[in-house]
C-alpha cells in the first residue's frame, strides 16, 4: 500500500492500521473491554455489522450499555468460537432436525456452549443476542430454553425457571374450563 510520506504520515499510518485491524473492541455496561474478530462480529450480528460499516466503531471500545460484562464475554466467546469452527456439513445432515423445519439445529459445540451456562447467564445471553441482532445465537439460545420446557408440567417449568405462580384460584378455574389438559398430575 502506498502511503504519502508527507506531513500526516503518523496519522495516516494509524488510520490504515485501524482499517487493517481484524478485531473490534467492545465495552460492556460495567466498563470491561473485549476483543472480537471483526469478520465474525459482522457476520453474526446485524447491529455490529451496521456499526462497522457505518464507521461508528470506537477503537477504544465501542459502548454497549445494555450488556453486562458476563453476557458480553459470552457473546465474544461465541463469535470467536464461531470464527474458528469449521461448519461441518456431515454433522448438520446427520443431526435429527426434529420438527423444527424453520430452525437450524444447533451444532454440537453450540449445544455445549449454552449447556454450561447458569440460567441467569442464559437469560442475559438471549437478551444480548436479541439486542445485537444475532440470529444464529438467538436460534441456539431459544432452542436451549425450549428444551428446558418440553414434556414438563407447569409446576415443573416454574421450578426450572424459578417463577412464582401468580394466578388466583378463580383465574385457574377459568383456564381449566378452556384447557383441561394443562392441568397435570405431578
Amino acid at each position: 500500500m502506498e502511503v504519502d510520506k508527507g506531513k500526516g504520515e503518523a496519522e495516516e499510518t494509524r488510520k490504515v492500521a485501524e482499517a487493517d485491524r481484524d478485531t473490534v473492541t467492545l465495552k460492556s455496561s460495567d466498563g470491561k473491554l473485549f476483543e472480537v474478530s471483526k469478520e465474525a462480529a459482522a457476520r453474526l450480528s446485524t447491529v455490529l455489522a451496521g456499526m462497522i460499516a457505518g464507521g461508528s466503531i470506537d477503537d477504544n471500545g465501542t459502548d454497549l450499555k445494555q450488556i453486562g460484562s458476563e453476557a458480553l464475554e459470552n457473546v465474544v466467546d461465541y463469535c470467536n468460537k464461531h470464527a474458528n469452527s469449521i461448519p461441518s456439513a456431515a454433522l448438520i445432515s446427520s443431526s435429527i432436525s426434529f420438527n423444527t423445519a424453520p430452525f437450524k439445529e444447533p451444532e454440537e459445540w453450540e449445544r455445549k456452549f449454552v449447556d454450561r451456562l447458569s440460567h441467569d447467564a442464559l437469560f442475559d445471553l438471549v437478551e444480548a443476542a436479541n439486542f445485537l441482532g444475532m440470529e444464529r445465537l438467538l436460534d441456539v439460545t431459544c432452542h436451549k430454553i425450549s428444551e428446558m420446557m418440553k414434556g414438563k408440567s407447569p409446576d415443573q417449568i416454574r421450578e426450572v425457571f424459578n417463577i412464582k405462580n401468580d394466578y388466583t384460584k378463580e383465574e385457574l378455574e377459568e383456564i381449566r374450563q378452556e384447557l383441561a389438559w394443562a392441568f397435570y398430575d405431578d
Partner: peptide
C-alpha cells in the same frame, strides 16, 4: 415456536 407439542404449549402458558 420451537415447542411443537400442543400440550407443552398449554403448560407454558399456564406458568404465570
Amino acid at each position: 415456536r420451537r415447542v411443537p407439542c400442543e400440550a407443552d404449549r398449554a403448560s407454558v402458558a399456564l406458568v404465570c
